[in-house]
Amino acid sequence: MRNWLIGLSILMLLVIWQTGHLIYSVLDDKASWEKEGIMLALEFTAIEQVEKVSLYHGKDRYTVVRGKNASDIPMIAWFKDGSFEGFEYEKDVVPQERIEEQVRAQVKIKEWVRLQPGMEDRRPVWEALLIDEEDKFNYYYYDMLSGQFIRSYRLQKENS
């Protein structure tokens, strides 16, 4: 009986250690790509004040950095595999609010997840992610410069 309790205790410690290691790895990875995004933006763009770094997972993975230049003008920059891909001044893109209005006009939303900049085929896009009333994930893509609808798709939400 005592050996059984010792074995169970060791197993529990291993599970706790592995869980902690996994959580630490995920958080460390996020800090790593955020740090890389900040360094890339400061080195390759006029962005001097970084406000947000995000990852876009489309056909290709992009690090997207939003910030302001020395004149306090908001900018968005894209990096792929550590290389500069392009930038846009926020004043030249369709505002997020307008894209959100367009999405809300197309679908009944149960939960709004996010609206973020992305890049598809070297074309800046807005990616809207939401959950509809049928509990399906909906992705909507809009051209960032014109606001024109590009495409959408739905995925079944996994039951937990």
Rank of each mutant, 00 (worst) to 15 (best):
L13M: 07
L14H: 01
T19G: 09
Y24L: 10
S25N: 07
D29M: 07
D29V: 03
A31E: 13
E34I: 04
K35M: 12
K35Y: 11
E36W: 00
G37E: 02
M39L: 14
L42F: 05
I47T: 02
E48R: 15
E48A: 11
Q49E: 14
V50D: 10
V50H: 09
K52A: 05
K52V: 04
D60W: 01
T63M: 05
T63W: 00
V64G: 08
V65Q: 09
A70Q: 15
P74H: 03
P74E: 10
M75W: 05
I76W: 05
A77I: 00
F79T: 03
K80I: 06
G82Y: 02
E85N: 12
G86V: 06
G86A: 00
Y89N: 12
E90F: 05
D92W: 00
V93P: 04
P95W: 05
Q96I: 01
R98D: 12
E100F: 01
V103F: 03
A105D: 04
Q106T: 04
I109A: 02
R114N: 13
L115Y: 03
P117S: 12
M119T: 02
M119L: 15
D121Q: 15
R122N: 11
R122C: 10
R123S: 09
R123I: 08
P124S: 06
P124F: 07
P124Y: 04
A128R: 07
L129E: 14
L130E: 03
L130R: 09
